[in-house]
Design a protein around this nucleic acid. Structure first.
Lengths: 237, 237
DNA sequence: CCTACCGATCGGTAGG
DNA sequence: CCTACCGATCGGTAGG
């Protein structure tokens, strides 16, 4: 899990500072406390994400969040400037994690695919990559610990324009991976719609699943991914 | 516009009551006032819809709504029991209007289609009907006065379970029209995915457009509908 | 991190 | 529908 490192780079940086004021050397307690600091921050983000997703940002009080991680009502503000800063932290962490997971999924698939058929028909290759991307996206949206991205998708009204702009950069990074794949699919006749609109519509279809998907009911994430592929991408004949 | 009648059936019913207590016969002022009552109620719903869509339900105060229609802070509660009741009224009106508009669009298309080709290939027919449905759906989501359905789609967390259940009935009515069309498209090989999942994914793709569609930018609603059709529905060859 | 607290806002109501 | 108002809740802070 790279979450903690991504979340609070500053904490790690201070860890080995040469002239820490009143920190006795070799006292393991302090070190434990510091790591705890990061954990508390992370706990707040995780707890907030869960509540923001289920109740919405506005309907969640900072007291709710504090209680969820076993703090008193004022304590979250020791870690975050404001409720909005906490929301933004959830979203940014969600995007960084999503980008990392997408890279990982592609790398994993890359080695598998290339070992099977080094020089495959480009159209077939594009289809396989697209399947990986879709399946991974469903995992990010609906899999275990999937509160961050849904919060980002459905609560972006509550962050500032500047924060939205920063997030947009990360979102572009995430979507950039899809563009050449969609281009290739269109070039081979497997995707008929305008590529830009197709991308928006496809993400809509996937992202909306947050509204209706129920783990306990029938369809698995694999089923979902297969249905989405069958719907969007035509067979190359 | 059938909105007013749909919204407050009770008002119309009382209008001709034989023994209205202190209402002088033939005083046109009173009649005007009563019609105004309906207008105020409708104004509240319309104003609330606009605010709920742009700021969200929780972030909109009943004072905001009152101000938007030129009332004092407590006055909305003369027309609605609670803020939640106002939200629900927006949603229910949105669904009833959407169902009515969908029927209208289909009727209009029906006469056109049948005059051109009385006995058409079923596959071609299904495709045309689907195009009508998609285009109409975009109109409901993004066209003029399109605040009601977006509010219903994105604020349903804030209504009660019972209200959600009632809305679900209306939503089923709306979606029921799509089912045979999708079945026909699948039967003719123009739709490859599982029909139920396809329906959910397609509605997702359409509904998500609320998040990104910008009237001022490039694509028209026709463009959108065409792109969606090209993406989901394959050509019958 | 906790305790104690503040100012602001909010949904809603009584009484006209 | 307006005026005046209430109780509750909320984000946030000071001071330890």
């Amino acid at each position: 899990m790279t979450m903690a490192r991504i979340l609070s780079p500053d904490v790690d940086a201070v860890d080995e500072a040469p002239d820490a004021p009143r920190r006795a050397r070799g006292r393991p307690r302090k070190t434990a406390d510091e790591r705890d600091d990061g954990n508390r921050r992370l706990a707040l983000i995780t707890g907030a994400a869960k509540l923001f997703r289920s109740k919405g940002f506005d309907a969640t009080s900072t007291r709710d969040i504090a209680a969820a991680v076993g703090m008193q009502s004022g304590s979250p503000f020791y870690h975050f400037e404001s409720k909005g800063a906490l929301l933004y932290a959830v979203m940014e962490e969600g995007m960084r994690s999503a980008i990392a997971r997408q890279k990982l999924a592609l790398d994993r698939a890359q080695t598998e695919l290339s070992s099977v058929s080094k020089k495959e028909v480009p159209a077939q290759h594009a289809r396989k990559v697209m399947t990986i991307l879709v399946r991974n996206h469903f995992d990010i949206l609906l899999g275990p610990g999937s509160d961050f991205i849904p919060v980002m998708l459905y609560e972006s009204r509550s962050i500032t324009e500047l924060q939205r702009a920063t997030l947009a950069t990360l979102q572009s990074e995430y979507e950039a991976v899809w563009v050449p794949v969609l281009d290739a699919l269109q070039a081979s006749g497997q995707l008929k719609a305008d590529v830009k609109l197709a991308r928006l519509l496809i993400f809509g279809a996937l992202n909306w699943s947050v509204q209706w998907y129920d783990l306990k009911k029938s369809a698995s994430l694999d089923d979902l991914a297969n249905a989405a592929m069958a719907l969007f991408i035509q067979d190359k004949k």
